[in-house]
Design a protein around this nucleic acid. Structure first.
Lengths: 162, 162
DNA sequence: CTTGATGCAAAATATTTGCATGCTC
DNA sequence: GAGCATGCAAATATTTTGCATCAAG
């Protein structure tokens, strides 16, 4: 967990720089985001934290405030993967993008060097100093394609309902 | 406006295919999305429609329902450009991605062939049948970089406040 | 005429804010 | 000790839903 210590130091540095305080709550939110790879909504994040730290009580408002802070500092990233609320993930960790299946909702993370590099080039060409980026590709995953096909084979007449 | 007629036909085709109806409201929402290049929140879209069509009354619920429908059909795209609500734009028009300045909020649209192609390649490599994608790059735009620098030059001691 | 669509208002969610109090620094 | 941070609850904002009525096919 050498990485974590590094990120934690980074968080502390940024907080100090802004004259903000390093609190138990901020640490817990940051740590939970780091340790869990998922994509959490503020509400879910709160539940995970409660479950793993029954002794601490964090209000949902603090979760929101901290996530905004972390995002602004570039330490967390907010994604809009689903229709509902925002989801957050650790920002500094190895960056990745998302493939989302519109049929089953599965999320696959990927990293592609060519895309990463090209983004830098594009940003530069507009005079931007790039801070971050996110991209998602939506589509139908292999399993859902297969499932659809076999359904069609079994019952060729069936109209697809919505 | 040859494009619009084409898209409109596409909308009608999809509606018929799903056994849904082509209504004045759906047409207006679709048309407004087409004619205005901006990125609208449902609320804003509603206001624009009201302003340009004072004779028609559209409930906000219809806006939401229609936008979801259009998005599902691949005719509109929802973006999460800012912290607040979702924003929608026409999906079928020439595709583009977004550069967003985190300082001034400016949104620049761009299109990059290399990125587009690479996305297809990535999707394919995971067995995905790609339906759409969206990417945003966040950063600081040229103007804001310059503004910051000149501020620093004028007042080197100033601490950056949040 | 049948069935889906709409507007309205209420309900459900999601997010932000004010404020008294508690904790870092 | 000073001032930011927190929890709580209330306030907002956003999105969805139920239902009577309307309108497209």
């Amino acid at each position: 967990m050498v990485d974590y210590d590094f990120f934690l130091a980074e968080l502390k540095r940024i907080l100090k720089e802004k004259g903000l305080k390093f609190t138990r709550q901020r640490e817990l939110i940051f740590k939970t985001l780091y340790e869990n790879d998922g994509h959490f909504s503020p509400e879910e994040l709160n539940m995970v934290i409660q479950r793993e730290n029954p002794d601490v009580k964090i209000g949902i408002a603090t979760i929101y405030r901290t996530l905004s802070l972390l995002e602004e500092a570039g330490l967390a990233e907010s994604l809009s993967l689903d229709k509902q609320s925002k989801r957050y993930e650790m920002g500094l960790k190895k960056h990745h993008d998302h493939l989302i299946c519109t049929e089953c909702g599965k999320i696959i993370e990927f990293y592609d060097e060519t895309i990463e590099k090209q983004q830098e080039i594009v940003a530069k060409s507009f005079g931007f100093r790039m801070k971050g980026h996110s991209m998602k590709i939506t589509g139908v995953c292999r399993e859902c394609i297969l499932a659809k096909e076999s359904k069609k084979r079994l019952n060729p007449q069936a109209q697809e309902k919505n």
